[in-house]
Design a binder for these strands. Structure first.
Length: 270
DNA sequence: AAAGACACCTGTCCGC
DNA sequence: TGCGGACAGGTGTCTT
């Protein structure tokens, strides 16, 4: 479910409530997430949250000593509760803070993660080898061009690979490739530098606009206030199979590429 | 090293 | 109404 814009929306929503607050208690009701929640997470109890940030789709809570890594997987969400409410189905973890505030982690499919780190986040095996942030300077056409030389993987899989660039998931990959006029199955190594420039702009553009709209709610994404995102209204190809291309009027196609549904216009994308 | 398949899990929707 | 199957926004791990 959540791609970079949804994770960023969540981060912005929770930060004002968590920044500089002290964690009173961590209650784990279901530890079976993607990896079992380690007992270590209780080291967070009594500690102040010094800084909140995001790396790709990982949320990072830096504490006075150590920190927490959260990932929302396909179906996770975080809610801020300002008064006590009984936990509902799939409410797996509560981070209880001072002043009766609580951050509640809900994840029906349990592909998410809730992990403890002793040392720096950068050294963690999940984060160490990640590609650049798509909204940073380090993400540019030269980077994609260089990393793609000699590679025959489909360009869509290439830009969804977190070791190449983080944060681009299934929705925004289809959208950006349409905007850049590149067919999702084209070999990454056969995209010119010039076209990578267009793709970089498209990825930056679609992600920024989605963040402005609070992300995309297709089925069940909600932000930390429980509200949906509104970028779905601006999707050009995703989930539009059989409908007319907004650009040329041809029929939008759907095809499975790398085990994920991909949407594109075969007239506009080459 | 690269590419592809598979795994994890629950909920929803569609056709019969 | 029930049931089986396909599918869903992610990504680490294993096999070729």
């Amino acid at each position: 479910m959540p791609e970079l814009p949804e994770v960023e929306t969540t981060l912005r929503g929770i930060t004002p409530h968590l920044q500089d607050r002290r964690i009173v208690r961590i209650s784990v009701r279901e530890r079976r997430l993607r990896w079992p929640i380690p007992a270590d997470v209780r080291k967070a109890e009594g500690q102040r949250i010094v800084k909140l940030s995001r790396r790709g789709k990982y949320l990072l809570l830096e504490l006075e000593q150590g920190g927490l890594i959260l990932h929302l997987g396909m179906s996770g969400s975080l809610r801020i509760m300002t008064e006590h409410q009984a936990p509902e189905k799939h409410d797996h973890v509560d981070i209880e803070l001072e002043d009766g505030i609580c951050l509640r982690f809900n994840d029906p499919r349990r592909f998410g993660a809730f992990l403890w780190v002793n040392d720096s986040f950068d050294a963690h095996s999940l984060l160490r080898n990640l590609g650049p942030e798509p909204l940073s300077e380090q993400f540019n056409a030269e980077h994609l061009f260089q990393r793609s030389r000699g590679r025959r993987v489909a360009i869509k899989n290439f830009i969804m690979n977190g070791h190449i660039v983080v944060g681009v998931g299934n929705i925004y990959a289809s959208e950006a490739l349409f905007m850049a006029g590149i067919h999702p199955q084209r070999a990454a190594g056969r995209v010119s530098l010039k076209r990578y420039e267009g793709l970089v702009s498209a990825i930056r553009d679609v992600l920024s606009r989605a963040i402005e709209q609070g992300g995309t709610t297709l089925r069940d994404f909600v932000n930390s206030d429980g509200a949906p995102g509104y970028f779905g209204q601006e999707l050009l190809v995703y989930d539009r199979a059989g409908k007319d291309c907004f650009q040329c009027g041809a029929t939008i196609k759907k095809k499975v590429i790398g085990q994920r549904s991909s949407y594109y216009c075969s007239a506009c994308q080459r």
